[in-house]
Design a protein around this nucleic acid. Structure first.
Lengths: 234, 234
DNA sequence: TGTACATCAGTGAACGCGCGTTCACTGATGTAC
DNA sequence: TGTACATCAGTGAACGCGCGTTCACTGATGTAC
């Protein structure tokens, strides 16, 4: 057999996907803490012990779901970015912010899985770090592009929120890690915009805006522009 | 018996507190989704059925913990506010933001209980709304005070992030509800600062800053000042 | 003040349920010669 | 191409466990007269 994929390999990957899909559906119904191997097996008509041929433990199933979720939101953001011409910095920022919010609203439990409280007794392995970085990296590409073409400038140094030495070092380390040339003062403002964005989406999804700013469409888009201004995105 | 509290009433409230304390300890170990009546009973040396004399259902125990958590963080913020002279707007803002972060770090699981993903199969009753409002109301008091004494001004209308009619109405409704006189443009900026603040604390607590901006002390305090600037807090 | 009755906190057994994981097994798919 | 053996997916029973909630009960506390 040399076609690259044997019947066994085909079956294996399709069953693996069926398990993950069922697990995602269970996630939506019960949340991550209560995700159970037996329920997933039941849903796809398998005996629970068979699932252990694919995921040797419940935690490894969770890890797979977490990585998939990070990759899915990361891909959605990257796709949104590619849909806008590179020099249109604000357009790209808006598109990516919008993609984050709509992915979150479409997949609230997967969002909760990655941005909600950690699952008790579960320790995320190193493998989640790369996928987790996709969203911030994509967002930062706007800032970096704007900075390199001279369209984004350092904020005036008279403003408060000074970058102390310790914070400056942290920001420089991040910049070095990602190969960015933008200065700490801009990276700080980016970090503010980034945390604001997720804070808003989290509040909307987890019910903190009920009865006040909900529906949050207008609040969201006004805020996205305010934060673009704040970070100097033209 | 007329001293106001009978032995029975005394016993009742002390057992109620013992149950809630044990439940809070369990929360820290296992998270809300896995909080179990039996484990709580075991911890305080009671038989599980006895707990039902105090909380007729697991959900009512959760509700009590949620209300207590909102009240605790609300009280912490109000206390921080009272520790600073009323006209020192930025000092009050800093103190309250710091109180939120340190309460969150001291009680991460209670924080997760109220600001994390909703608990599956649990529906929060109306009673949580009041306690939940304490923090935003306290934070808003700075803005309102500054506005009424003329120390905080409307942002220049040329900036983007325009307040559309729909959003304006939402903001006005909130203002009316809370008896605030500050204009929508300021309330919007406050809402941005509010969501940024909680987004940052949530990211820190839930592990999104690991390996980059952690320890987050400097990031936090720089950001608090940037957001005070942003909202026009002198 | 003393007695009779009502209220209530706490007990222990039981109900019916779901969980993660292991293990010896069957039968189908893949590999080597 | 055909046969013998190895690999692997899936089965079904079992282990030991914990869960929320109900119920009839005992004994202590509170109330009315």
């Amino acid at each position: 057999m040399n076609a690259g994929v044997s019947a066994r390999e085909l079956g294996r990957s399709s069953v693996t996907n069926a398990i993950k899909d069922a697990a995602r559906r269970r996630l939506a119904a019960q949340g991550a803490a209560r995700l159970s191997v037996r329920a997933v097996a039941r849903d796809i008509g398998m005996v629970s012990s068979a699932v252990y041929r694919y995921f040797p433990t419940r935690d490894e199933l969770l890890t797979a779901l977490i990585i998939d979720a990070y990759d899915a939101i990361g891909a959605a953001v990257e796709r949104a970015d590619r849909g806008v011409p590179a020099p249109d910095l604000r357009g790209r920022w808006r598109a990516m912010c919008g993609a984050i919010r709509s992915w979150a609203r479409k997949h609230p439990h997967e969002y909760g899985l990655i941005y909600g409280a950690p699952i008790p007794d579960y320790r995320a392995p190193r493998d989640t770090v790369g996928p987790a970085a996709r969203v911030p990296v994509a967002l930062l590409s706007v800032l970096e592009h704007g900075w390199t073409i001279g369209a984004i400038h350092e904020p005036s140094p008279t403003s408060s929120g000074t970058v102390t030495t310790a914070l400056g070092h942290q920001l420089q380390a991040v910049a070095a890690d990602l190969g960015l040339t933008a200065p700490p003062s801009l990276l700080l403002r980016f970090a503010v915009a980034w945390t604001q964005l997720f804070g808003m989406v989290t509040f909307e999804l987890f019910g903190q805006l009920v009865g006040t700013l909900e529906p949050a469409d207008d609040f969201f888009s006004a805020t996205v522009d305010l934060m673009a201004d704040f970070a100097g995105i033209e």
